[in-house]
Design a protein around this nucleic acid. Structure first.
Lengths: 134, 134
DNA sequence: ATTGGTGCAAAGCTTTTGCAGTAGC
DNA sequence: GCTACTGCAAAAGCTTTGCACCAAT
C-alpha cells in the first residue's frame, strides 16, 4: 500500500546524496555499496532509481547509447537551469559547467524557433581541454 | 584496401536518400528493403550506417535509451557550423535551425572552459512548437 | 587471386522481469 | 499476516562480432 522503508533504499539514497555532485551509473552505486559492505542487488538499484526519478528526487541522464545511464541526486531543490554536460569524444570524460548566457540563448531560441531546449537533457559533444592539446 | 561498391550499400544509401527525410531506424531500413525484395542483413545495415556516420553523410540520433537509434541522410553538403539539430522528446520529430549566435557562444565556452563543442555532433533535446501547447 | 563485404547466429550490454523468499508495517 | 520489497537469474532488446563464404577489383 504505502511505501516501505528498507535498508536497501536507505543506503542507495545516502550514496546518491553523498556523491550528488557527480553522476553515477547503476553499476557505480552497486559497486560502491558492495565495497562499503552493504551490498544491494543491481535490480533493486534500478528499481529504486526508477522510483526516485519518477518522484523527481533524482535526474537520469542518457549520455550516449550503449553506455549506462547516469543518475544525479537533485533533492527537493529546483533543478539548476544553467548546469550543462559536456562529453569529450576523445577521452570519453564527462564534464559539467555553469553558464547563464547559454540558458539565455536558449530563451532566445524558444522565442525565435518556438523550440524549448532542455539543457539538462542535452549533452554537448566535443573535445575537452586535455585532449585539445595536440 | 579501398572501399568496394556493393548492391547492399547501394540500396541502403538509396533508401536513406529517399526515405530518411525525418529519420529511420536500422529496422526501418531492413524492413523496407525486404519489402522491396532487396533484403539486406541487419548486421550489414548497422555496419554500413556506422561508416556513413563516420564519413558525415548520415547523422545518428539517440532519441531515448532502450529505443533504437535513428539515422538521417544529410548528403555530402559542406558541414555548416551554424546548423543545429533539435529533437523533440514528445513527438520524436527532428528539426534543424540556423543560429550564428549559438556558434559564437560555443567560441566563448571554448575560451572560458577550454572545451570545444562540436555543434554538428550535438543534438539539442527539448519540446517543439507543436508539443509545447500541451 | 586478393581481400573487403555479407549473412547468419551468437555474444555483449544495459535494463527489465518473473518468481520465490524476506522483511516492513 | 498481509504484501511490498529484495535477490537471483533469466529474459528482453538493440547493437556488435566471429567466422565462413561470396563477390568486387
Amino acid at each position: 500500500m504505502s511505501e516501505r522503508n528498507t535498508k536497501q533504499k536507505s543506503v542507495i539514497l545516502k550514496c546518491l546524496q553523498e556523491k550528488s555532485g557527480d553522476h553515477m551509473t547503476a553499476d557505480d552505486i552497486t559497486d560502491y555499496l558492495k565495497k562499503k559492505k552493504m551490498p544491494v542487488a543491481k535490480a533493486t538499484v534500478y528499481r529504486y532509481l526508477a522510483r526516485l526519478e519518477e518522484s523527481g528526487l533524482v535526474k537520469k541522464y542518457i549520455i550516449s547509447e550503449q553506455q549506462p545511464a547516469c543518475y544525479q541526486y537533485l533533492g527537493g531543490s529546483e533543478p539548476c537551469l544553467s548546469h550543462f554536460h559536456l562529453m569529450c569524444q576523445v577521452c570519453g570524460q564527462i564534464e559539467h559547467f555553469e553558464n547563464d548566457n547559454l540558458q539565455k540563448m536558449f530563451g532566445d531560441i524558444k522565442t525565435n524557433e518556438g523550440f524549448f531546449i532542455d539543457g539538462r537533457k542535452t549533452v554537448f559533444y566535443g573535445t575537452c581541454r586535455n585532449c585539445t592539446g595536440d
